[in-house]
Design a protein around this nucleic acid. Structure first.
Length: 143
DNA sequence: CGTTTGACTACGC
DNA sequence: CGCGTAGCCAAAC
């Protein structure tokens, strides 16, 4: 539970981008915190290395504050597991995902190879000022 | 005002 | 494959 650095230096820019990307995730698919964050350009003044080291957690932080129209249940961690520590919330997310046709294995894990979303199209990314195709997912090594 | 508590991930055992 | 650790902030109690 050592959370370290919870929020980006520019949540006003970062958070809305996280939410907008999450809104693109289709029902029946899931995306990870790290994958969302990997599409966002580094915050001004933050070294790429440092940004990469914390962005996934920052994405989680942004999701904790997301507007009602964001399908928050479709965002899981890099292991394909639900990231809530609160059991009540874990159940809520699991039920919502099951209702969308997503299956969990015996260890409460989702098979990302099968249910993982491939991400927004390059055209969409470009239109939203996000990372160009050649940099997509390549910043750091996070998922 | 000190403590507790987090929607993460990679990596080493 | 499961479990612990680093990272070392900040808002809510």
């Amino acid at each position: 539970m050592d959370q370290t650095w919870n929020a980006p230096p520019d949540p006003q820019r970062f958070d809305p981008l996280v939410w907008e990307i999450a809104r693109q995730i289709p029902a029946g698919k899931v995306f990870t915190y790290g994958q969302i964050a990997a599409l966002i350009p580094p915050s001004p003044g933050v070294p790429a290395e440092e940004f990469g080291a914390h962005r996934a957690r920052w994405a989680g932080s942004a999701m904790s504050r997301c507007p009602d129209d964001v399908p928050w249940q479709r965002v899981v961690n890099s292991q394909g597991k639900i990231s809530f520590s609160n059991p009540k919330m874990q159940n809520r997310q699991r039920e919502l995902l099951k209702a969308e046709g997503i299956e969990f294995d015996a260890r409460e894990r989702i098979d990302l190879a099968h249910y993982g979303w491939r991400g927004p199209g390059d055209d969409w990314l470009q239109a939203h000022g996000l990372l160009p195709p050649e940099q997509k997912f390549q910043q750091g090594s996070l998922l």
